[in-house]
């Protein structure tokens, strides 16, 4: 079952995905879907705007390459400033989640 992502988390998920290896848009969407056991599904309509946002912020860079199946694709690689951004977001996200959990379990 596909679910809407929490707002603002997509960037973090993409950056996290790219820490494993450089990947193309399709690969990133597939990876997130597979690792979350189909819980999270990234639509193209939000994936590509997010990638453009990350490119503008210089957290990732892109170059044209070839996919495993031989298609010309654009491969995204996380930059050092992207890694730093990921750490920050991850820490903040941790705090937020922990906060949400505490509220939810306070009853």
């Amino acid at each position: 079952m596909a679910r809407e992502l929490l707002p603002g988390t997509l960037d973090m998920l993409i950056l996290k995905t790219l820490t494993r290896a450089s990947n193309h848009g399709y690969g990133i969407a597939q990876y997130i879907q597979r690792v979350s056991s189909d819980a999270l599904r990234v639509g193209e309509g939000s994936l590509y705007p997010a990638l453009q946002r990350l490119l503008n912020a210089k957290w990732v860079r892109a170059e044209w390459g070839e996919s495993e199946t031989g298609r010309r694709v654009r491969l995204y690689t996380i930059t050092p400033s992207g890694r730093k951004q990921l750490e920050n977001e991850q820490a903040e996200f941790g705090v937020t989640i922990a906060g949400i959990m505490r509220v939810m379990e306070a009853m």
């Binding site: 193309h24 848009g25 399709y26 969407a29 193209e44 590509y48 453009q52 996919s67 199946t69 298609r71 010309r72 694709v73 654009r74």
Partner: peptide, 17 residues
């Protein structure tokens, strides 16, 4: 144009799958 090509490739990869 790059963006368009990239998104088109994405659709084709879904089709491949």
């Amino acid at each position: 144009a790059q963006l368009r090509a990239e998104i088109e490739a994405h659709r084709q990869m879904i089709e491949d799958q």
